[in-house]
Simulated assay, not measured.
Amino acid sequence: MTPFVSHGPDARDGYIYDLAPDLQLAIQVALATDRPLLLSGDPGSGKSSLAPFHARANSLRYYEHVVTSRTQAADLLWTFDSVRRLGDAQTHRGRLNDGAYVNPGVLWWALAPESARTRGGLLQDVHRLDPLDRFHHQEHRTKGAVVLIDEIDKADPDVPNSLLVPLGSQEFTVAETGTAVRREPDVAAPLIVITTNGERQLPQAFLRRCVTFTLPSPTPERLVRIARLHLDHAGVPLDAETVHLTEALADELVRARENDGGGRGRPPSTAEYLDALHACRALGIRPGHPRWPLVRSLTLAKSPQQDG
């Protein structure tokens, strides 16, 4: 697989994930039933990281679409550049090829990559590489795919309902060109991972058509295991002092979550545990250090924002 290089604390490069047996079974059930896997859980609990990990571990193409309040269901299937077409119509003679103004979305590429390259046969095969595959596979490498639809609860409630038919039948029609898109015979059914933070209730009809799994709250043992995976990937020696730090921070995070019983703030997550670990290692701060309370408040025990 071609290396995918990404920088920043939330790389989504698929290299590291602590895959629990229950979550592995949920993936297997989703694949066996050909249903989307709907993941819920606290922000920062690892929902969005599962899809790239599964793709990289199984040499699959990987696509993601981050949902916003302005996302429409069609955006995951295709978009049509009507503004550019109008401009070209005013300056060119002759009939325009509408295929030149169609941009396949993540589900089109996942279900029918050959059709996506040629816009359903309207264009010559000029897109030899898949532009939306984040891992940049060569076209002959794989016929399977993973699609991440991230934070679907941010969208209007009509969006999940509008996805029911294309997700269920794995086919749709491009309105502007009449192109019928369906899963190609030699393409394996994709694993579609959909995440929700629970900010908005999803339609019951949509929930019935998903395999649902809620990521559990972190335990000290799992936090330490995740820390070891990250440190090992970074080439950091796991000496006694580092191991003690991972354990102490795990205990601190669990206490911070337990002390948030009032529900006024969001409980700290796995992502914030890793932030605290990286900060302590970089700055040479350990629990008991004079600056530790401030580091703790900056990473693990964040106070709710005040109005004003």
Rank of each mutant, 00 (worst) to 15 (best):
L223M: 13
S40W: 01
L223V: 00
L129M: 15
I226C: 11
Q305T: 02
L274Q: 06
L39I: 09
L107Y: 04
F206H: 00
A26Y: 02
G8C: 01
G288S: 04
T179H: 06
G284W: 14
P287E: 08
S217W: 10
V236Q: 13
H137A: 09
A248F: 04
S162I: 12
Y17L: 10
L277M: 14
P293C: 03
G265N: 05
R225E: 15
T142K: 09
A180D: 09
H136W: 12
P9I: 12
A30T: 01
L60I: 10
Y62P: 07
G198R: 06
D150L: 07
L163D: 01
A55T: 08
N259Q: 13
P36G: 00
D22R: 11
L86H: 11
A175I: 15
H278R: 15
P113E: 04
R183K: 12
I16E: 14
L60H: 05
Y17A: 03
K302H: 07
Y62V: 05
T91R: 15
A116R: 01
H136T: 10
L215V: 06
G168D: 15
A110W: 05
T177G: 01
F53V: 13
P287H: 06
Q138A: 13
R117P: 00
T91N: 06
D158F: 12
L129V: 14
L202P: 01
R257F: 08
Q138C: 11
E199H: 04
L229R: 05
L164Q: 08
I285R: 10
V187H: 02
V106M: 09
Q28H: 08
R70T: 14
D156P: 03
V243L: 13
E176H: 07
R119C: 04
D232A: 10
G168A: 13
S69W: 06
P268K: 03
D13W: 11
L245N: 03
P21H: 06
I226K: 07
D158R: 15
G263Q: 10
R70V: 09
N161L: 15
N161W: 03
W292Q: 09
I285K: 07
L37M: 01
R286V: 15
P160F: 06
